[in-house]
Amino acid sequence: MDWSKKRTPLQAPDKKGVPEGLWVRCNNCREALFRKQVVENMNCCPKCQYHFRLTAKERIEMLLDDGVFEEYDADLTPADPLNFTDLKPYASRLKAAYASTGLREAFITSRGTMGGIPVVLGVMEYNFIGGSMGSVVGEKVTRAIEMSLTEKIPLILISCSGGARMMEGALSLMQMAKISAALARLHAEAIPYISVLTDPTTGGVTASFAMLGDLNIAEPKALIGFAGPRVIEQTIRKKLPDGFQRSEFLLEHGMLDALVPRPQMREYLIRSLRWFRPTESKV
Protein backbone atom coordinates (compact mmCIF):
# COMPACT_ATOMS: atom_id res chain seq x y z
CA MET A 1 0.00 0.00 0.00
CA ASP A 2 1.27 3.42 -0.90
CA TRP A 3 0.65 5.12 2.39
CA SER A 4 2.62 2.54 4.31
CA LYS A 5 5.63 2.85 2.04
CA LYS A 6 5.71 6.59 2.56
CA ARG A 7 5.77 6.15 6.28
CA THR A 8 8.47 3.53 6.24
CA PRO A 9 11.62 5.18 7.52
CA LEU A 10 14.47 4.75 5.08
CA GLN A 11 17.52 3.25 6.63
CA ALA A 12 21.12 3.86 5.81
CA PRO A 13 22.27 1.20 3.32
CA ASP A 14 25.12 -0.01 5.53
CA LYS A 15 22.89 -0.63 8.54
CA LYS A 16 21.49 -4.09 8.51
CA GLY A 17 19.91 -4.25 11.93
CA VAL A 18 16.19 -3.75 12.42
CA PRO A 19 15.67 0.02 12.32
CA GLU A 20 13.57 1.96 14.81
CA GLY A 21 9.99 2.89 14.07
CA LEU A 22 6.59 1.24 13.86
CA TRP A 23 7.22 0.04 10.30
CA VAL A 24 10.42 -1.28 8.80
CA ARG A 25 11.38 -2.24 5.29
CA CYS A 26 13.03 -5.57 4.55
CA ASN A 27 16.54 -5.16 3.08
CA ASN A 28 15.91 -8.10 0.79
CA CYS A 29 12.28 -8.23 -0.42
CA ARG A 30 11.68 -4.51 0.25
CA GLU A 31 8.36 -5.36 1.85
CA ALA A 32 7.05 -2.90 4.45
CA LEU A 33 6.74 -4.83 7.68
CA PHE A 34 5.20 -4.25 11.04
CA ARG A 35 8.24 -3.94 13.29
CA LYS A 36 6.69 -6.00 16.08
CA GLN A 37 6.24 -8.96 13.71
CA VAL A 38 9.89 -8.80 12.68
CA VAL A 39 11.06 -8.72 16.28
CA GLU A 40 8.79 -11.63 17.20
CA ASN A 41 10.32 -13.58 14.34
CA MET A 42 13.80 -13.20 15.88
CA ASN A 43 14.58 -10.19 13.68
CA CYS A 44 13.87 -12.11 10.49
CA CYS A 45 11.54 -10.90 7.75
CA PRO A 46 8.23 -12.82 8.10
CA LYS A 47 7.81 -12.72 4.30
CA CYS A 48 11.20 -13.77 2.92
CA GLN A 49 13.11 -14.87 6.06
CA TYR A 50 15.82 -12.26 5.47
CA HIS A 51 17.94 -12.18 8.64
CA PHE A 52 18.42 -8.65 9.94
CA ARG A 53 21.72 -8.21 11.71
CA LEU A 54 21.64 -8.57 15.49
CA THR A 55 23.73 -6.87 18.10
CA ALA A 56 25.80 -9.20 20.28
CA LYS A 57 23.58 -8.48 23.25
CA GLU A 58 20.37 -9.23 21.33
CA ARG A 59 21.92 -12.49 20.19
CA ILE A 60 22.83 -13.54 23.73
CA GLU A 61 19.41 -12.65 25.11
CA MET A 62 17.75 -14.59 22.31
CA LEU A 63 19.76 -17.75 22.95
CA LEU A 64 20.28 -18.17 26.67
CA ASP A 65 17.55 -19.43 29.00
CA ASP A 66 15.37 -16.45 29.96
CA GLY A 67 17.96 -14.20 28.35
CA VAL A 68 19.92 -14.26 31.59
CA PHE A 69 23.70 -14.13 31.53
CA GLU A 70 26.84 -13.15 33.33
CA GLU A 71 29.36 -11.16 31.34
CA TYR A 72 33.12 -11.74 31.59
CA ASP A 73 36.19 -9.67 30.74
CA ALA A 74 34.08 -6.61 29.91
CA ASP A 75 36.88 -4.39 31.19
CA LEU A 76 39.46 -5.46 28.59
CA THR A 77 40.12 -2.37 26.54
CA PRO A 78 42.03 -1.96 23.28
CA ALA A 79 45.29 -0.06 23.30
CA ASP A 80 46.73 1.61 20.24
CA PRO A 81 50.13 -0.11 20.15
CA LEU A 82 51.03 1.10 16.65
CA ASN A 83 49.71 4.63 17.19
CA PHE A 84 47.79 3.95 14.00
CA THR A 85 46.23 6.62 11.83
CA ASP A 86 44.66 6.24 8.44
CA LEU A 87 42.03 8.74 7.33
CA LYS A 88 41.09 8.88 11.01
CA PRO A 89 43.19 8.00 14.05
CA TYR A 90 42.49 4.50 15.41
CA ALA A 91 42.01 6.10 18.83
CA SER A 92 39.11 8.16 17.55
CA ARG A 93 37.58 5.16 15.75
CA LEU A 94 37.69 3.35 19.07
CA LYS A 95 36.03 6.26 20.86
CA ALA A 96 33.27 6.37 18.27
CA ALA A 97 32.77 2.62 18.63
CA TYR A 98 32.54 2.85 22.46
CA ALA A 99 29.99 5.61 22.08
CA SER A 100 27.80 3.86 19.52
CA THR A 101 27.84 0.38 21.06
CA GLY A 102 28.44 0.99 24.76
CA LEU A 103 31.03 -1.80 24.51
CA ARG A 104 34.78 -1.75 24.91
CA GLU A 105 35.33 -4.28 22.17
CA ALA A 106 33.73 -6.24 19.37
CA PHE A 107 33.10 -9.34 21.47
CA ILE A 108 30.97 -10.21 24.49
CA THR A 109 31.81 -13.19 26.65
CA SER A 110 28.77 -14.51 28.46
CA ARG A 111 27.87 -17.48 30.56
CA GLY A 112 24.43 -18.89 31.16
CA THR A 113 22.39 -21.97 30.42
CA MET A 114 20.63 -23.29 27.35
CA GLY A 115 17.90 -25.80 28.01
CA GLY A 116 19.38 -26.01 31.48
CA ILE A 117 22.86 -26.91 30.21
CA PRO A 118 25.62 -24.48 31.24
CA VAL A 119 27.43 -22.86 28.31
CA VAL A 120 30.09 -20.29 27.62
CA LEU A 121 28.68 -18.15 24.83
CA GLY A 122 30.89 -15.63 23.04
CA VAL A 123 29.37 -13.32 20.47
CA MET A 124 30.97 -10.82 18.10
CA GLU A 125 29.62 -7.29 17.71
CA TYR A 126 29.69 -6.13 14.10
CA ASN A 127 28.89 -2.53 14.99
CA PHE A 128 32.24 -2.25 16.75
CA ILE A 129 34.68 -1.52 13.87
CA GLY A 130 33.14 -4.20 11.67
CA GLY A 131 33.54 -6.88 14.32
CA SER A 132 37.25 -6.86 13.57
CA MET A 133 39.64 -8.88 15.70
CA GLY A 134 42.49 -7.10 17.42
CA SER A 135 44.36 -7.97 20.61
CA VAL A 136 41.33 -7.62 22.89
CA VAL A 137 38.96 -9.74 20.80
CA GLY A 138 41.75 -12.34 20.55
CA GLU A 139 42.29 -12.23 24.30
CA LYS A 140 38.59 -12.42 25.12
CA VAL A 141 38.01 -15.36 22.78
CA THR A 142 41.05 -17.13 24.25
CA ARG A 143 39.83 -16.52 27.81
CA ALA A 144 36.38 -17.79 26.86
CA ILE A 145 37.97 -20.98 25.55
CA GLU A 146 40.09 -21.29 28.68
CA MET A 147 36.98 -20.83 30.85
CA SER A 148 35.30 -23.68 28.94
CA LEU A 149 38.42 -25.74 29.43
CA THR A 150 38.79 -25.16 33.18
CA GLU A 151 35.12 -25.52 33.97
CA LYS A 152 34.47 -28.24 31.39
CA ILE A 153 31.52 -26.35 29.96
CA PRO A 154 30.63 -26.43 26.25
CA LEU A 155 31.60 -23.43 24.16
CA ILE A 156 29.54 -21.62 21.54
CA LEU A 157 31.13 -18.80 19.53
CA ILE A 158 29.07 -16.68 17.18
CA SER A 159 31.08 -14.95 14.50
CA CYS A 160 30.24 -11.73 12.72
CA SER A 161 33.40 -10.07 11.54
CA GLY A 162 35.32 -8.59 8.64
CA GLY A 163 38.45 -10.34 9.94
CA ALA A 164 41.65 -9.25 11.62
CA ARG A 165 41.86 -5.59 12.64
CA MET A 166 44.37 -3.83 10.42
CA MET A 167 44.96 -1.01 12.90
CA GLU A 168 46.79 -3.38 15.24
CA GLY A 169 48.94 -4.87 12.48
CA ALA A 170 50.53 -8.27 13.04
CA LEU A 171 49.30 -8.27 16.65
CA SER A 172 45.85 -8.93 15.20
CA LEU A 173 47.18 -11.66 12.93
CA MET A 174 48.78 -13.51 15.84
CA GLN A 175 45.45 -13.67 17.68
CA MET A 176 44.52 -16.32 15.11
CA ALA A 177 47.35 -18.52 16.34
CA LYS A 178 46.67 -17.77 20.00
CA ILE A 179 42.99 -18.68 19.74
CA SER A 180 43.60 -21.76 17.61
CA ALA A 181 46.17 -23.03 20.11
CA ALA A 182 43.60 -22.68 22.90
CA LEU A 183 41.07 -24.53 20.74
CA ALA A 184 43.59 -27.34 20.29
CA ARG A 185 43.50 -27.83 24.07
CA LEU A 186 39.71 -27.81 24.11
CA HIS A 187 39.76 -30.33 21.28
CA ALA A 188 42.18 -32.58 23.17
CA GLU A 189 39.92 -32.53 26.23
CA ALA A 190 36.83 -33.31 24.11
CA ILE A 191 34.91 -30.31 25.37
CA PRO A 192 32.32 -29.47 22.73
CA TYR A 193 32.66 -26.32 20.68
CA ILE A 194 29.96 -25.15 18.30
CA SER A 195 30.84 -22.38 15.85
CA VAL A 196 27.96 -20.33 14.46
CA LEU A 197 28.82 -18.19 11.43
CA THR A 198 26.59 -15.22 10.69
CA ASP A 199 26.61 -12.49 8.07
CA PRO A 200 29.39 -11.60 7.47
CA THR A 201 32.27 -13.81 8.61
CA THR A 202 35.45 -13.33 6.62
CA GLY A 203 39.23 -13.14 6.82
CA GLY A 204 41.13 -14.05 9.94
CA VAL A 205 38.04 -14.97 11.93
CA THR A 206 36.92 -17.54 9.36
CA ALA A 207 40.53 -18.72 9.02
CA SER A 208 40.78 -19.43 12.73
CA PHE A 209 38.07 -20.16 15.27
CA ALA A 210 34.99 -19.90 13.05
CA MET A 211 36.05 -22.97 11.04
CA LEU A 212 37.29 -25.01 14.01
CA GLY A 213 34.06 -26.07 15.68
CA ASP A 214 33.06 -29.65 16.33
CA LEU A 215 30.06 -28.29 14.50
CA ASN A 216 30.32 -25.35 12.09
CA ILE A 217 26.85 -24.06 11.34
CA ALA A 218 25.60 -20.87 9.72
CA GLU A 219 22.56 -18.72 9.32
CA PRO A 220 21.10 -18.72 5.78
CA LYS A 221 22.53 -16.37 3.15
CA ALA A 222 25.43 -15.23 5.34
CA LEU A 223 28.56 -14.05 3.53
CA ILE A 224 31.33 -16.43 4.61
CA GLY A 225 34.81 -16.62 3.17
CA PHE A 226 38.51 -16.17 3.55
CA ALA A 227 39.12 -13.38 1.04
CA GLY A 228 36.48 -10.70 0.61
CA PRO A 229 34.51 -10.75 -2.66
CA ARG A 230 36.01 -7.46 -3.87
CA VAL A 231 39.56 -8.74 -3.42
CA ILE A 232 38.72 -11.90 -5.36
CA GLU A 233 37.09 -9.91 -8.14
CA GLN A 234 40.17 -7.72 -8.45
CA THR A 235 42.45 -10.76 -8.47
CA ILE A 236 40.65 -12.82 -11.09
CA ARG A 237 39.23 -9.82 -12.99
CA LYS A 238 35.89 -11.55 -13.41
CA LYS A 239 32.49 -11.05 -11.92
CA LEU A 240 31.71 -13.52 -9.19
CA PRO A 241 28.87 -16.01 -9.67
CA ASP A 242 25.57 -15.37 -7.90
CA GLY A 243 25.45 -16.75 -4.41
CA PHE A 244 29.24 -17.12 -4.24
CA GLN A 245 30.49 -17.26 -0.62
CA ARG A 246 26.96 -17.41 0.77
CA SER A 247 26.13 -20.07 3.38
CA GLU A 248 24.26 -22.15 0.80
CA PHE A 249 27.38 -22.15 -1.42
CA LEU A 250 29.54 -23.30 1.46
CA LEU A 251 27.08 -26.01 2.42
CA GLU A 252 27.07 -27.27 -1.16
CA HIS A 253 30.89 -27.37 -1.16
CA GLY A 254 31.03 -29.32 2.07
CA MET A 255 32.34 -26.46 4.21
CA LEU A 256 29.42 -26.22 6.64
CA ASP A 257 27.65 -28.85 8.70
CA ALA A 258 24.22 -27.25 8.58
CA LEU A 259 22.28 -24.12 7.76
CA VAL A 260 20.11 -23.13 10.67
CA PRO A 261 17.56 -20.35 10.28
CA ARG A 262 17.57 -18.04 13.27
CA PRO A 263 14.09 -18.95 14.54
CA GLN A 264 15.34 -22.54 14.94
CA MET A 265 18.81 -21.68 16.23
CA ARG A 266 18.20 -22.00 19.96
CA GLU A 267 16.43 -25.30 19.54
CA TYR A 268 19.20 -26.62 17.28
CA LEU A 269 21.91 -25.62 19.75
CA ILE A 270 20.11 -27.18 22.71
CA ARG A 271 19.61 -30.41 20.80
CA SER A 272 23.34 -30.47 19.95
CA LEU A 273 24.38 -29.64 23.50
CA ARG A 274 22.26 -32.56 24.70
CA TRP A 275 23.94 -34.86 22.21
CA PHE A 276 27.38 -33.73 23.39
CA ARG A 277 26.53 -34.01 27.08
CA PRO A 278 28.60 -36.74 28.72
CA THR A 279 26.60 -39.90 29.32
CA GLU A 280 25.94 -40.51 33.01
CA SER A 281 28.51 -42.90 34.39
CA LYS A 282 27.04 -45.74 36.38
CA VAL A 283 28.60 -46.13 39.81
Binding site: S180, A207, A210, M211, L212, G225, F226, A227
Partner: peptide, 21 residues
Protein backbone atom coordinates in the same frame (compact mmCIF):
# COMPACT_ATOMS: atom_id res chain seq x y z
CA UNK B 1 46.95 -17.31 0.57
CA UNK B 2 45.42 -17.23 -2.92
CA UNK B 3 42.19 -15.21 -3.07
CA UNK B 4 40.34 -17.03 -5.86
CA UNK B 5 37.07 -18.82 -6.52
CA UNK B 6 38.57 -22.31 -6.48
CA UNK B 7 40.45 -21.63 -3.25
CA UNK B 8 37.24 -20.46 -1.57
CA UNK B 9 35.30 -23.45 -2.90
CA UNK B 10 37.77 -25.85 -1.38
CA UNK B 11 37.86 -24.10 1.97
CA UNK B 12 40.87 -21.80 2.13
CA UNK B 13 39.80 -20.56 5.55
CA UNK B 14 39.26 -24.06 6.93
CA UNK B 15 42.64 -25.23 5.65
CA UNK B 16 44.45 -22.32 7.31
CA UNK B 17 42.48 -22.63 10.54
CA UNK B 18 43.17 -26.33 10.82
CA UNK B 19 46.90 -25.82 10.32
CA UNK B 20 46.97 -23.22 13.10
CA UNK B 21 45.28 -25.58 15.52
Amino acid sequence: AYPGIDAEERGQAEAIARNLR
